[in-house]
Computed example of a mutant assay.
Amino acid sequence: MSAAETERPIYPPVRPRLSVEELLAAKNTQPITGLEDSEADTFESDEELEEFLASTYAERRRDIA
């Protein structure tokens, strides 16, 4: 057997160990400073959110029955 045949890839692959600070810096992540930082404009209105939630709950109940 050749050397190439006896060498197997390492699984899982070895990854460099990075600190939390290094990982955050690599993704250009900023710390959360308040609740408004986590807000998302997914729904245009409270009514649209309520319709989505009602539909979601109805589907869950339908699947249980």
Rank of each mutant, 00 (worst) to 15 (best):
L49N: 02
P9K: 04
D46W: 03
K27P: 00
A40W: 04
E5S: 14
E50G: 01
Y11H: 01
T33C: 10
Y57A: 04
L24D: 10
F43Y: 11
T56F: 15
E47D: 11
T33K: 15
G34V: 08
D63E: 13
N28E: 12
E59F: 00
R8A: 05
A25W: 01
D37V: 10
E7Q: 10
E48Q: 12
L35I: 14
R17F: 06
T33Q: 00
Q30K: 15
T42F: 06
L18Q: 09
Q30W: 02
E22P: 12
P16R: 13
P9Y: 01
D41N: 12
V20D: 04
A40H: 02
T42G: 09
I10L: 11
A40M: 06
R15S: 03
S45F: 10
A3L: 04
A40G: 04
N28R: 07
N28W: 05
Y57V: 15
E7C: 08
S2C: 08
T29E: 14
E59V: 03
V20H: 12
L53K: 13
E44L: 13
S55A: 05
A54H: 00
E50I: 04
P9M: 00
V20Q: 10
E36W: 05
D46L: 07
S38Y: 14
I64Q: 02
S19H: 11
E21T: 14
E48V: 01
T56I: 00
F43E: 14
E22R: 10
D41I: 05
A25H: 12
T29D: 03
T56G: 08
E36L: 02
E36M: 03
T29P: 01
A3G: 01
